[in-house]
Design a protein around this nucleic acid. Structure first.
Lengths: 217, 217, 217, 217
DNA sequence: AATGAATGAGGATTCATTCAT
DNA sequence: CATGAATGAATCCTCATTCAT
């Protein structure tokens, strides 16, 4: 294959992923049909299957790419910070920023949270796992550093905490139908809800050091 | 209708709900087919539609009943406690207990978290909302009491916090595929994960009073 | 059975027929469900089957009753006239009158025009046939009289003409979807259409005598 | 798409339309199931939906094609004639001929007369309307010409008359169950009925000129 | 006679996936 | 590689009719 053809191929794969991401954001995973993706990506239905084994694999790939993009963005921001606490805070802020700037990706990631893995051996599923774990490790390191520095609670298990907080954060961003109904019912705006959630999440990991600072101010 | 027939009808409705709950736990909402439910409930397909307008309504009813059962269980435990903090803790423990004892319900509730409401005017959907809100209000009251007593952070919005924590808790119990994969990958047992999550959630609302105590000890 | 019970039974049958007629007018034959009829007649579903063997039989009964009512009305008006031509004209006018005054019955009769007979031995179907034939015979007699008087074309077959004109008339009143679309497209109002149709139908049977009169005037 | 594939596609569409037409003739519109059509056309059920949006659209397409075929046949015969009256007569004769030669199409067209349009924006419905209107305009022109020539009644509205007569004619050809029963009961053959109907329809529009001729003879 | 809950066959439609071109 | 027509299993829902009470 010539380099030009490789580029072309990559382009087509990207077009498919873009289309799928957009449609998942709009209509949800179950609402996304392969035909629609093909149309939106301007390729034939059959072509999808040249690049992705099946629908599940395509969804996994979308999910992996999406998480990868978030990771890159977050990592950049975290790397600018020194202390563990700063990094943790930066991560939260960066996540908020990223999704605020990309509402479509936000919607898509919400939907994909509920993705069910059919075939764990699927390369795209593996990819997705790796990408996700990458972020978890990054967060865990920040927690670990914060623990050592005293700004994060010493009794925390960094990895489990990272996994939980990652999810908690995602869910704060993407309330389920139930939550939406409850919020509406209680006249709480999504923005307020997000702020409350973020407050709770941050607070849940704060260590002694921070509490002192807080009390001073 | 004779009382005897009323009893029979109630029984049948219960059988359908039981079947649906079981199948949702096993195969998920999308995987649940009306035919299967009918078979499992030992009624004809058409009979389902005598009791529930459509699939969405049946799912909402399952969800409402499930939440109602949890509510009753939790309320009982909370009512035994005096202070707000105790109530909050009791709520957490009761939830854990309930779901530990009813793994099937746990699975079902996880699935139903993602239920999409089609018709907000459906009585079963309304029911579901009411039941859910009931619990939120109960939690909010406990937080409020805790705030007044000083054991819960004074800067909290009780209702929003309740909504968030309810969900956070639910999610701690019902990790998504992604979380499951991450946990497995990092060799963290579900039990450990739950305990970590619960620790974080509790900590996130702790007030000055508690912190003082903690520091002393 | 006591006379009182007989009355009661008759009343129930009437209620069912009334309900069915109304629903056929509103939603068409296919759109009419037995459950809906039962509800509207304030009886149980099963009760319908005590009075009518099946849906087809009920529809036939509705159709028979409807035609019977029209017959009575028309016969009354025709009996007031002397000559054959007058009778024919009276029949046309009476039909128009009747349906103008009973739009619901008009709609119902339209729908029932397309009734398909499943079981020709059904008593209600037989009834319907008899009633319909009654009117045909009445019209045929009027034509016959007109022929003898010279006001109706002498070459006509009275019975076949009656059958055709009865239908033509009915259709003038109850245009099909196709006709409605054509009329709308050509900006012809239903009233105008009815008048045109009636003019054509009348003209189609006029005999020499009338034509002379017409030419004179 | 290669020309060869286009041909194939056309062929398949034709096969579907043929099958649908045949089945509608046999079992009526409501009796026609999509599965049966697919079987008869030797395609999969899903294939039907590649060519027709839904059942209603398929029926409209069958109806449009059928009318188009009749139109072509009639137009050919009418174009051979000079005077308006001749054209009108030719139209009647051609219609009779066409349906005598195609009894299945006759039956189908009868059924489709009662087609209810669900979606007026459906292209096939639009097609059907256009085709139908085409014939109406053709007939209206012939009437107009006849009026000018004096062989058709001068007081006629050509378009409304055309619409009515088109329908009247169609109905003469396709008696409803009711008519069939009446005809049978009165021992009138369908052929005789058709001839009577045609006589009435022709007579209904005859003008002065013709009447003079008639009186002479 | 009356009830109305229960039945279950039947039908329209969708959509992931395949495969001949 | 690319196409897109074809597939057909799968699923929700309706409703005429029955029958135990």
């Amino acid at each position: 294959m010539t380099p030009r053809m490789q580029r072309k191929k990559k382009k087509k794969k990207k077009a498919i992923l873009d289309a799928a991401e957009r449609i998942v954001a709009d209509r949800g995973m179950a609402g996304m049909t392969m035909g629609e993706v093909a149309d939106a990506a301007d390729v034939a239905t059959g072509t999808l299957y040249l690049y992705f084994k099946n629908k599940g694999s395509l969804l996994a790939a979308v999910n992996a790419r999406l998480n990868h993009q978030v990771n890159i963005y977050i990592k950049e921001k975290m790397d600018l910070k020194k202390t563990g606490l700063e990094k943790v805070v930066a991560m939260g802020q960066a996540t908020v920023e990223f999704f605020m700037e990309n509402p479509q990706k936000w919607k898509a990631v919400t939907e994909l949270y509920q993705m069910k893995v059919q075939d764990p051996h699927d390369p795209n599923v593996q990819d997705f796992l790796e990408v996700t774990n990458e972020m978890v490790q990054m967060m865990a390191q920040a927690y670990q550093q914060g623990i050592e520095e005293g700004s994060i609670r010493q009794d925390l298990d960094p990895v489990a905490t990272a996994i939980y907080n990652r999810m908690a954060f995602g869910n704060a961003f993407t309330p389920t139908t139930e939550q939406k109904m409850l919020l509406e019912h209680n006249k709480i705006t999504p923005e307020r809800y997000l702020s409350v959630a973020w407050g709770l999440i941050s607070h849940s990991t704060r260590g002694v050091l921070l509490e002192k600072k807080v009390k001073k101010s």
